[in-house]
Design a protein around this nucleic acid. Structure first.
Lengths: 205, 205
DNA sequence: ATATAGTTTAACCAAATGGTTAACAAAACT
DNA sequence: AGTTTTGTTAACCATTTGGTTAAACTATAT
């Protein structure tokens, strides 16, 4: 047992355990007993602190998602020049994911389970993320002739795909490329520079 | 009800229903009763045709995965020149996914649930896919000076990310970019040409 | 010391769910 | 026609699982 675990409050222990179990097994696969075991407490305590499974899940889920998604949004709609914006997005996204490697899968899982509900819980009813500003910015650069002619939508998809996918597909990638934890992490760190450079090479004139 | 459903054998109805339910709800979230309802039959029939839930799931799963994964593998280890190979991979992958849009999520889900088991079931014990040949090929081109200096691993990740991610993240993308089914499909079709061109622009000398 | 509020546990309960059984119906076969 | 085999169903069973309860323990205040 960690020293940490003893200092943690019961509530914190539960949340940490829930995060772990929900992430690996998903909302449906997770068993309340598993979470209790992982936290080293009695199952009834889960219900004492969090009324039911759904509440516990939502707490864990929103805690993570809400602190991260708005950040992305603010980058995309900021006033930075195009390349700096891309660079910043890639950097911050990868950094965040390296610290919370379970987040992407977690989010993807939820978003697939119930897209409407998800979007609503993250951004509220009328507060959708607006990549439109980013798309317009790309479009402007194309018309100005600063970058090659490219569809903003596709460029946008290229960027998010290259940034996010390796995290979601981690088990496949580590297995296929025969990487250990450390090597995988190093590659992800390299990608912070690698992706912006690749994009730059592809669209600079 | 479809006309088709009446012509389908019960076994086919079950498989179609199982595919649908397993794909949307996942192995754990899926209920045998849901599958029976979807197929319009009694629950006991499921057990008559497929011994238990696990067996049914595996049947559906392997049926899809086994027919597709070997194809990818054969492209990567073929003798085609680099750019043709990339083009072919992107083309075939997107085409396949457009026909079976549920497959990527299905596969990712399983691979995350139990990586070892998954790889084993798809490729058998000693028959891992070998992207190494593809990596070497890229490396060779770099040293020959035909393309820009780039890490083969990263280029590999770029390619698969841009190709696969949009399928996995479909609900997020359609929601954020406000696309309907048709528009999403059209964009995916465009990407067959868009991705190879983007890569070409990025690494050609 | 004792009462009190907060925390934790073991034992229990009800509903959901995967799976079984026995009977029935429909073909296929003789 | 009658008999066997295959397909299908309703009712049932055992287990799992989320959730409850009442009792015990702990700390803090009086």
């Amino acid at each position: 047992m960690d020293k940490k675990k003893k200092q943690q409050s019961t509530e914190e222990k539960i949340l940490a355990a829930a995060r772990k179990v929900f992430t690996t097994k998903g909302m449906d696969g997770a068993r309340m007993q598993d979470i209790a075991d992982e936290a080293g407490i009695n199952k009834a305590l889960l219900h004492y602190y969090f009324r039911d499974k759904g509440k516990l899940f939502e707490t864990v889920f929103l805690e993570e998602a809400q602190k991260f998604f708005p950040k992305i949004n603010s980058i995309f709609s900021s006033e930075l020049p195009l390349f700096e914006k891309i660079e910043k997005f890639v950097h911050e996204y990868i950094d965040e994911m390296l610290e919370n490697p379970y987040l992407p899968w977690f989010v993807m899982n939820e978003i697939n389970r119930d897209p409407e509900q998800f979007m609503y819980r993250i951004w509220g009813k009328e507060n959708l993320p607006q990549p439109s500003k980013f798309l317009e910015q790309m479009d402007k650069e194309v018309r100005k002739g600063t970058i090659k002619k490219i569809s903003p939508v596709h460029l946008f998809l290229h960027i998010v795909s290259m940034t996010i996918f390796p995290f979601v597909a981690k088990p496949m990638i580590t297995r296929n490329l025969q990487l250990d934890e450390l090597q995988f992490r190093q590659i992800l760190e390299q990608r912070r520079k690698e992706i912006p450079r690749f994009i730059f090479d592809a669209i600079k004139k």
